[in-house]
């Protein structure tokens, strides 16, 4: 009971609470207010109840964007996590080679997101881009501005190139933290490389990999700048993800009511998955203790 008697430390949280209130809670409240009204301009608005929610929930373009988003985030996790672990396993353990690898791997993470899009526009151009010209040179038609599949391949390649290094760095840190005694024991028992990975390295990396999955899911779910610059959501709506669709609605068409309703649904999806991942993260390793 002692810890409930002195709660003065909570006052230290007040500045954070005020900042969060101004930067997040008050805007969120405004979005909730907008979502139930038709906004024509300052002071000109009509209450419409749940009409926008109904409209947005039955909107075919939203379903398409949501499908694109889940497919994209799913593919991101399926490719980046195993690839990141594989690269981390193959990296040198120490010496200048390890340092060099780490620096090279960190480079894509340092480039601003909109610049990444521009780099890949040039890289994949069929007339002057290294990748575009090389693929067309093989006799394959490749144009990310015209073919949906090519656009998807390009966005995925860009995403994998940009963010796999983060998974590598996390997995590498996890691997380096495993005491050498585990590997000695494995060698004495005559464990194969696969058995060492399956029963020592993978369980020991569970914590960092959960963080990697969390970060990559959240980031990929909120992705905007790179595909916006690279494909603009096209061709057609092939690479229109949720955030691109939302910005088109709110800024492009100035449909503030539907955009607000859409934002709230987007927020609820992110909140649900954040909570699920948080629970998973909290329960990592608790199975061993029972």
């Amino acid at each position: 009971m002692d810890k409930w008697e002195d709660n003065r430390a909570w006052w230290l949280v007040v500045p954070v609470f005020l900042i969060v209130a101004i930067s997040a809670i008050i805007p969120l409240m405004t979005v909730v207010n907008y979502s139930v009204q038709d906004i024509f301009g300052p002071g000109q608005r009509v209450f419409v109840g749940t009409e926008w929610f109904k409209e947005v929930l039955t909107d075919r373009r939203l379903h398409e964007a949501l499908g694109n988003q889940f497919l994209f985030s799913g593919l991101v996790l399926l490719i980046e996590i195993p690839l990141g672990v594989a690269i981390a396993l193959a990296m040198p353990k120490q010496g200048w080679r390890a340092s060099l690898c780490l620096v090279l791997l960190a480079l894509p993470l340092l480039i601003p997101w909109n610049v990444i899009g521009t780099i890949w526009i040039i890289f994949t151009r069929p007339d002057i881009g290294l990748m575009g010209v090389a693929i067309n040179g093989l006799g394959l038609e490749f144009d990310h501005t015209a073919a949906p599949l090519d656009a998807w391949v390009t966005v995925m390649l860009m995403e994998v190139w940009h963010w796999t290094p983060l998974v590598v760095l996390l997995a590498y840190a996890g691997l380096r933290a495993i005491p050498e005694a585990y590997f000695q024991a494995a060698r004495i028992d005559g464990a194969s490389a696969w058995a060492t990975f399956r029963y020592i390295q993978l369980p020991k990396m569970r914590g960092v990999l959960t963080i990697a999955v969390l970060l990559r899911f959240m980031d990929s779910f909120l992705i905007y700048a790179e595909p916006f610059v690279l494909t603009g959501g096209g061709p057609g709506n092939a690479t229109t993800f949720l955030s691109i669709h939302l910005v088109k609605m709110a800024v492009g068409q100035f449909d503030l009511g539907p955009a607000a309703a859409f934002s709230l649904i987007y927020f609820l999806i992110v909140l649900l998955f954040s909570w699920l991942f948080y629970q998973a993260l909290q329960n990592v390793g608790t199975g061993d203790k029972r």
Binding site: M29, T30, V32, N33, V36, Q37, I39, G43, F47, G49
Partner: peptide, 15 residues
């Protein structure tokens, strides 16, 4: 608070 576009139902919800 006009810019926040308050309505009675949303105010009731937050209260």
């Amino acid at each position: 608070l006009e810019w926040m576009a308050w309505t009675a139902p949303t105010a009731t919800f937050f209260i």
